[in-house]
Amino acid sequence: MEKADSVKWAQVKKILQKAEKTELIDLIRELYGHSVGDRMLINSRYLGESIKTKMNKMLEQYREIIKEEFSTENVSGKIRYSTAERAISDYSNSSGDLMGTLDLMLTYVEGGVQFARVYGVIDDEFYDNIEGMLERFCEQLITEEGQKYYHFFRERLLKVDVGLENVGWGFEEAIYDLVSDIKDFFEEEQSDS
């Protein structure tokens, strides 16, 4: 018997072309319930532009909340981590869109890193929050569903650790290690395929 991974698309295509319409609908229904990513793909493909427009608008609203918290023009210098994290959580819960959630998580990390580049040494809470979010981002990215989005985030991710030489407190090393680990993970995945 062939391993499931060794079955080629051409073989699957032949089987699907012979399948009854009701079988295909049942398969799509099963995929729809299988994962949020599958559901989002089906919704975006068949429910049209209005859903995509609404999702993009919502994503931008949450992105702005995060950017505002990490703005280097933040006069008080007080970052409300819970506000930025709630934006990510609210978007994720309301949309079920993993790619958008990953985008917001990386926006959070990028904002924090930029803040650190401008202000240098900050405090433990700051470092813990930024490193923690990058760690959660990486954990989501290596899931089966998350792996298909790596190519969307690769360039942004590889730029995160640039310019942190003068920050201190091990922040540069922690960010560098997380970025290197995720890069290595995906390079190994590619070489194994």
Rank of each mutant, 00 (worst) to 15 (best):
Q61F: 04
G77M: 00
E145R: 06
L102Y: 05
I66F: 01
A87W: 00
Q11I: 12
Y108T: 01
N129L: 09
I42S: 03
E110F: 00
G146E: 01
K18A: 14
I25K: 10
F152G: 14
S193V: 09
E110T: 11
I130C: 08
I15E: 10
N74S: 00
C138E: 10
E20A: 08
E68R: 06
K159Q: 11
A19Q: 15
Y91G: 01
E110I: 03
K18V: 08
M105Y: 06
Q147L: 08
E2P: 09
L98E: 04
D124I: 13
D177N: 13
E145L: 07
K21V: 12
E165I: 05
S92T: 07
R80M: 06
G111I: 05
D181I: 06
K3T: 15
K183Y: 14
N166E: 15
Y176N: 13
C138S: 15
H151F: 07
G96R: 04
M99I: 05
N93G: 03
E60W: 07
R86N: 13
E165Q: 10
L41Q: 09
S191H: 14
W169Q: 14
E20M: 09
D26Y: 07
E85Y: 05
A19M: 13
D97P: 03
I182R: 14
G132H: 05
Y176I: 04
I122P: 02
R80I: 08
S193P: 11
I15C: 14
R29F: 10
T101A: 03
E173T: 08
E131I: 13
K13L: 15
G168P: 07
G120N: 01
Q114T: 12
V118P: 08
T107K: 02
K148T: 11
K78Q: 07
F115I: 01
I175A: 03
A4M: 13
K52D: 10
A87D: 00
G112Q: 04
N93H: 09
N93E: 04
Q140M: 12
E2F: 06
D192N: 14
R80Q: 08
Q114H: 08
E30K: 14
K67I: 05
E131V: 09
W9P: 00
D26G: 11
V167W: 02
M1W: 10
V109L: 11
E23G: 11
S6P: 09
V118A: 12
I79K: 00
G168Y: 10
R136A: 09
D5A: 10
G170R: 15
